[in-house]
Design a protein around this nucleic acid. Structure first.
Lengths: 234, 234
DNA sequence: CGTGTACTTGAATTACATCAAATGATGTGG
DNA sequence: CCACATCATTTGATGTAATTCAAGTACACG
């Protein structure tokens, strides 16, 4: 069982104009003049691995642009079980539903050390009133989230445990000289795939024995893409 | 195996101003003057049960507002298996991704006799340029779809077969004097829940024996809400 | 270096899938 | 309107995959 940490740092107010990853975030299309309409502070937030960004059902007042790291969106069932419904990375936005004045639909937790910009909803609304340039990036985030949600269901929640695990690795692949993948806890793998922790562990162990995966160091794997693709068809 | 029918009728051009369900559809907020900007025909379409509305990967040129009936959105895996990722009903919009110039992400099929309005993307784009009043309904459709997608995963794709089937019935409940539910084929139930046709059939049969369900006539059930809620917690 | 947490592995059990056959519903043409 | 063809559903028997419960081991952290 994970314990939830509460390590949140507030690194100060952002300067969005000079943002190093602006081409990836919501404000990509804004012009110099548009920034004048931001009258509430946008904060850079730092979350330690395992810490809570916001809780499901929690009162919402802001959206969070992910600057680095990985965030899991968790949803709880009445019986206490839970599923991870999405992973968010650089350029994704967490808590979009806040813009509709709704409570957060998921619990958002940092899977690694995570940097975000906390953007008050009021800022988004105001910008939307003053300029049309925020709209496309915003719609694009909705589209992307929905696409991922459907993909998540069909690829990670369908078929045998072996196939699902293989698809998860393919999903997480970092391309490079050798395709690698850094994984998280077996419990989280289970919550992503709808399997138990033990089954996740067993299947991953089996893939290691079959050389489809090689564990370089703890939770860092070299992946044999072709073998994984075969297995993903089961 | 289902065969796909091709019964599509075209009932003529819509008069959106006089639409009987306008409070439910995309054009809810439009004013008289806005309709002048519609320079392409919006057609009323009629699809027989089982017929194809659009295919996954198909070239997209329009979105479809559902006026009545139920539509399933199906996604296929490389290995030939498939899952139903969403059901759409009155007021929902199918094929929103078309607005981004993308191929359709799902295959949309009528589960019952279905009426839609086929709205060319160009009409939506033009209206969006001319008036801000289409935007909220549009965003609301994105939000709703995403909400449903997440709900689908956590409630219909998690836990035992019994619990999933129970949750599906709760999901489909028509409130009324007695809560009833009209179901579709066991094959579709399987594709929604990630189970085989046989397992779906067996579980439904078991719920009937346990009096949680009573089959009034073929595929029309009276539901014991409380029993189903208990079972849904498994 | 010890302690707690996560991961692995084993054995028993259960739930679901698979294959096969029988029954039931629906529609068609004679 | 009946007989037959077709397709969906139910049910059974059997196999397999995944869960459960229970140790044991590795690993990270203070």
């Amino acid at each position: 069982m994970e314990r939830q940490k509460i390590e949140v740092a507030w690194s100060g107010q952002s300067n969005c104009r000079k943002c190093g990853i602006r081409e990836l975030v919501l404000f990509v299309d804004l012009k110099e003049e548009d920034f004048l309409h931001i009258h509430m502070p946008i904060h850079d937030m730092h979350y330690e691995k395992g810490s809570l960004i916001y809780p499901q059902g929690g009162e919402s007042g802001a959206v969070f642009t992910i600057r680095s790291g990985v965030v899991k969106l968790v949803q709880y069932l009445p019986n206490g079980r839970h599923r991870i419904v999405r992973l968010l990375r650089q350029g994704d936005v967490a808590g979009l539903e806040a813009l509709f004045g709704q409570a957060y639909e998921h619990t958002a937790i940092a899977l690694q050390s995570v940097l975000t910009c906390r953007i008050p909803c009021e800022v988004v609304h105001r910008l939307n009133r003053e300029t049309p340039r925020l709209l496309n990036p915003l719609m694009e985030r909705w589209r992307r989230s929905l696409h991922r949600a459907d993909e998540w269901l069909t690829t990670l929640s369908t078929g045998s445990a072996r196939a699902r695990v293989a698809r998860l690795f393919l999903h997480l692949l970092d391309e490079g000289p050798h395709p690698t993948c850094h994984l998280f806890s077996r419990e989280d793998v289970g919550a992503i795939l709808g399997l138990t922790t033990e089954t996740s562990s067993r299947v991953i162990a089996e893939l290691k024995r079959g050389k489809a995966l090689t564990e370089l160091k703890t939770n860092l794997f070299r992946c044999d893409r072709e073998r994984l693709e075969e297995i993903s068809l089961d």
